[in-house]
């Protein structure tokens, strides 16, 4: 029995990756939940917006790398991120002007917006593939580890190593900052409050002199920024592939719904719930159990509850269970 090593193994294989993935999902889910709360539909193009943001960032990263600009130990992508955000904001605003605004003027039903977002999804997907191709792109550079397994072992003398990738640390730190800024904005600024008011009661917001078009514009800007950050962090941590981003829709939707659609706190909680369930259920617990149980009880198999290919199934099962018991999600939906 060796609880310390068990704890390190657990941290290394479950907690750290879970935190990073959870942060990425939370940022994605925040974007979905804001659109749901304020524009009142589920944006199927969100995954592709993330892909677009990541793509613009990657192009700028390559540009910076080619002229020798770097952020030292941090990934160059961080320098490119603001440009990625600006590009995505521009795309979101142009899309809103040319596509969505018409339906607002028509007072179209939310489900029509959902269909429109399908069209936007196809187009964005096409644009991204057209520009950068459907293949895998790696754009991570700089220091690979904050602490590598070998250094950790040397430092502590433990048998198990703990590796924290720079991208993982960066993901969590960025997510914390972004979420803090977002909540400050929504709860403390006049514009943020007007967005919440519009989400709460559109008619009354109008009567209070809040301009819906401005609210919508700010929403798209924030959502574009969130999507880009989430997309870039995910790409840095794993890799960038347009199709993967499209497939992220399911866990992102699941996170937003589990937390309660329209509720930003719920989106964050949902992101971590989904991420940790996926990681824990598809992780092979043999190592951790070997350390924490007496030898006589040590398991023979891998003690993996489900193969990693079933991670979607996990998100979905959690979703159903939550909805069965709390139909509006864990944090009552709708309180942007």
């Amino acid at each position: 029995m060796d609880l310390l090593n068990a704890l390190v193994a657990l941290t290394n294989f479950v907690i750290v990756p879970g935190l990073a993935y959870g942060s990425q999902l939370a940022l994605g889910a925040l974007g979905v939940t804001l659109i749901y709360g304020i524009l009142r539909f589920s944006n199927f193009a969100h995954g592709d917006t993330m892909a677009f943001g990541a793509m613009v960032t990657i192009l700028f990263t390559w540009l910076f790398q080619s002229v020798g600009l770097s952020a030292g130990p941090l990934p160059t992508a961080l320098l490119a991120l603001p440009f990625g955000i600006l590009g995505t904001i521009a795309l979101a605003l142009v899309t809103d002007r040319t596509v969505y605004r018409f339906y607002r003027q028509q007072k179209a039903k939310p489900v029509i917006f959902v269909m429109v977002s399908l069209g936007v999804m196809f187009m964005m997907n096409g644009i991204v593939r057209f520009i950068i191709g459907p293949g895998d792109q790696r754009f991570t550079d700089g220091e690979r580890f904050v602490i590598s397994a070998r250094t950790f072992k040397k430092l502590t003398g433990l048998q198990e190593g703990l590796a924290i990738k720079t991208t993982e640390a960066l993901t969590v730190i960025t997510a914390v900052i972004v979420v803090a800024v977002l909540f400050w904005f929504l709860n403390k600024t006049r514009t943020g409050k007007s967005m919440r008011a519009y989400s709460d009661n559109e008619d009354l917001a109008l009567l209070s002199g809040i301009n819906p078009e401005r609210v919508v514009m700010y929403t798209w800007m924030i959502v574009a920024a969130l999507a880009t950050i989430a997309g870039v962090l995910y790409g840095l941590d794993k890799s960038f592939k347009p199709f993967t981003y499209f497939q992220l829709l399911l866990p992102i939707f699941a996170s937003a719904i589990v937390g309660g659609l329209g509720n930003p706190i719920g989106a964050i909680a949902g992101g971590f719930i989904i991420a940790f369930s996926e990681v824990t259920i598809t992780y092979a617990w043999k190592k951790v159990l070997n350390y924490s149980l007496p030898d006589s009880l040590a398991p023979d198999g891998l003690v993996q509850l489900l193969s990693t290919d079933y991670k979607f199934a996990v998100s979905f099962a959690i979703l159903i269970v939550v909805l069965l018991f709390k139909p509006t999600g864990l944090f009552k939906g709708k309180a942007v």
């Binding site: 596509v99 399908l118 069209g119 196809f122 187009m123 096409g126 593939r129 057209f130």
Partner: peptide, 20 residues
């Protein structure tokens, strides 16, 4: 080389045009 990726783009465009 990228011309083949026009497919998804065009489908989206057709959908949006019809919806509008």
């Amino acid at each position: 080389e990228s011309a083949s990726h026009m497919r998804l783009f065009t489908m989206g465009l057709i959908l949006l045009l019809v919806l509008r």
